[in-house]
């Protein structure tokens, strides 16, 4: 049955968008539409993943992403457990692999992993039997963020193909920028990066993007303006003279937004540094899709968990 084959992802893990096929990405987005509806009903829960266990394994601080995954799992009736590294055996010197093997011995179906080391989820995926979802690894990838961004764009614009998406800010440290660049180009969008040279990777030649070191030309005609957070915790003073300086030359405000398409939407993965990378009036304005992104996050993560909880080797029949 070809339909049942097409209904599952071609891989057991979601590690990044660079290795995600366009067909798998569309399968996730289409499935998320169903769960988006579920989250707007009076009873925002379906019994589908009853008896499944999902563990959020977060070695790095996060409230939004962890909460979003937790709500997503609970709306599918899975049991969701949160593991945070502070106050755990990690602080007693346990290695990452030992920690994860211990969690795996409790027989979860999916581990949702966030780690400050790029590649950590990929490393774990070849060493565990359960599914792994990358919830952000260092400066590498954050696939569910890119998928929820794609979902938000598709709902707002009716399509992704042919759109111009400008991603501006601290690209070097941004896993959101990387995951979006791969995903959105695979889905047919044109992606532009804009930011100060010091915050742009030294070699972007292998990336499917157009790079600008000034924000104005990058904004011209853009359908989507995606603003990245200036990551204070990852920046050393040498890369950026001051936040005021950054805001003056790269911050997105009403005036700069005027260069984009008339119906352009503004996105931000959060948390926002108001008045630094994004003006407060724009963030709260009619073109802001920031809260739509958060709502989409739950639907997209429900879709990912649903599709990854398939029993290995068991074909679904209607």
């Amino acid at each position: 049955m070809t339909e049942s084959l097409a209904s599952r992802l071609s891989q057991r893990h979601l590690l990044g968008t660079e290795t995600l096929s366009a067909a798998d990405a569309l399968r996730i987005l289409d499935t998320a539409e169903v769960f988006f509806d579920v989250s707007r009903r009076p009873v925002r829960k379906v019994p589908t993943l009853r008896g499944k266990t999902i563990v959020n394994v977060f070695f790095e601080a996060s409230t939004r992403t962890r909460t979003s995954f937790e709500i997503a799992g609970k709306r599918l009736s899975a049991d969701v457990v949160n593991f945070t590294s502070s106050g755990s055996s990690v602080s007693k010197g346990e290695t990452l692999l030992d920690t994860v093997h211990n969690l795996e011995a409790m027989r979860p179906d999916v581990l949702v992993v966030r780690h400050s080391a790029s590649g950590a989820p990929h490393y774990l995926s070849s060493r565990v039997r359960c599914g792994i979802v990358n919830a952000g690894d260092g400066t590498h990838e954050h696939p569910t963020q890119a998928l929820l961004d794609a979902f938000t764009i598709r709902r707002a614009k009716g399509r992704i193909e042919g759109l111009t998406v400008t991603i501006c800010g601290d690209v070097t440290h941004s896993r959101v920028a990387r995951s979006n660049a791969w995903l959105l180009t695979a889905l047919g969008a044109r992606v532009r990066f804009a930011g100060p040279r010091t915050l742009m990777p030294s070699d972007t030649s292998s990336w499917p993007v157009e790079v600008f070191d000034r924000v104005e030309p990058a904004l011209e005609g853009a359908d989507v303006v995606m603003v990245l957070r200036i990551q204070r915790e990852r920046l050393s003073g040498a890369l950026l003279p001051s936040f005021r300086e950054y805001s003056r030359t790269f911050g997105i405000n009403e005036r700069r937004l005027g260069l984009a398409a008339k119906d352009a939407i503004v996105m931000h993965p959060g948390p926002i540094n108001r008045g630094v990378e994004l003006d407060g009036a724009v963030a709260d304005g009619p073109r802001s899709a920031v809260l739509d992104q958060v709502e989409a996050g739950v639907a997209v993560r429900m879709a990912v968990l649903y599709l990854l909880c398939a029993e290995p080797g068991q074909a679904a029949v209607s």
Binding site: E3, S7, T31, P47, K52, S318
Partner: peptide
Amino acid sequence: AATALPAPRL
């Protein structure tokens, strides 16, 4: 649902 995941047609 939990043993025949994912459903072929959602």
